[in-house]
């Protein structure tokens, strides 16, 4: 989406519109999204409450103090994140539908890629906030020493969440105009997310039990990073065609 060249020729040297860099544009969109979300807290509250409910339900499905449950701790945690994340991701583009905000955003002099990147960053922040609240709760409920490997765990959390977010934001843009949006999004994104979820689960399970990252876990870290890079690139390349109608 190029900026029309006609913008204010009369103003001489100031005609060059203050074209923000890609990063600035994305951050502007992200801060707008975060501000509007923090004022209503609609998606955030729903997502957090939902995460707590699932954590509670898991304790009935799996004996919370059993050794086996500790071995599947990473899997449980990431299922919670994926389910709770869908609520946030669903709202990401749907939030712009009232008052035709989406059309205005698409018409704004920023590229579709910058819009996408901004929305993805905002979703990343929201989802990370939900995760950071869930972790201590999980640690207390299921008695896992999650703080022992804090920084490696944060790295895995960041990479895994970015994987979920980039896929989720892209499909949120794809499904925004559908009648069955709330149903279509999870059905489409969960199968596509499988590699990222799988890698994140493999990495999180030992880390959350306080075991360090061993050499045999490094391929999973690489897979997670590769997933993030491939789908970020694909989404940034294709999002423009999706948004422009």
């Amino acid at each position: 989406m190029a900026i029309p060249a006609v913008r204010g020729t009369a103003a001489g040297k100031r005609t060059q519109p203050p074209r923000l860099s890609f990063l600035r544009q994305s951050l502007t969109i992200a801060s707008k999204d975060l501000r509007s979300e923090l004022r209503t807290k609609e998606a955030l509250n729903a997502s957090f409450a939902f995460a707590l409910v699932i954590l509670l339900l898991f304790s009935f499905a799996f004996e919370p103090t059993a050794e086996q449950t500790r071995q599947i701790a990473g899997g449980l945690l990431w299922l919670v994140f994926a389910f709770a994340g869908a609520l946030i991701l669903n709202r990401s583009f749907a939030r712009e539908l009232p008052n035709d905000c989406l059309d205005a955003l698409v018409a704004a002099p920023i590229s579709g890629a910058a819009l996408f990147a901004g929305k993805a960053l905002a979703n990343l922040a929201l989802l990370a906030a939900v995760e950071l609240v869930c972790l201590p709760v999980f640690g207390v409920f299921y008695n896992v020493p999650w703080t022992q490997q804090f920084w490696p765990l944060m790295l895995v959390l960041l990479l895994g969440t970015w994987g979920l977010t980039v896929i989720g934001t892209m499909f949120s843009a794809l499904t925004v105009n559908l009648r069955l949006r709330e149903l279509m999004l999870p059905m489409l994104v969960y199968p596509i997310m499988i590699p990222a979820l799988l890698a994140a689960v493999q990495l999180t399970t030992p880390l959350i039990m306080g075991e360090p990252l061993t050499a045999e876990l490094i391929p999973w870290l690489r897979l997670l990073a590769a997933f993030d890079i491939i789908f970020t690139a694909l989404a940034l390349a294709l999002v423009e065609t999706v948004l422009v109608r």
Partner: peptide, 8 residues
């Protein structure tokens, strides 16, 4: 990607 991740 799914194939290789599940293979590992």
């Amino acid at each position: 990607i799914i194939f290789f991740s599940i293979k590992w």
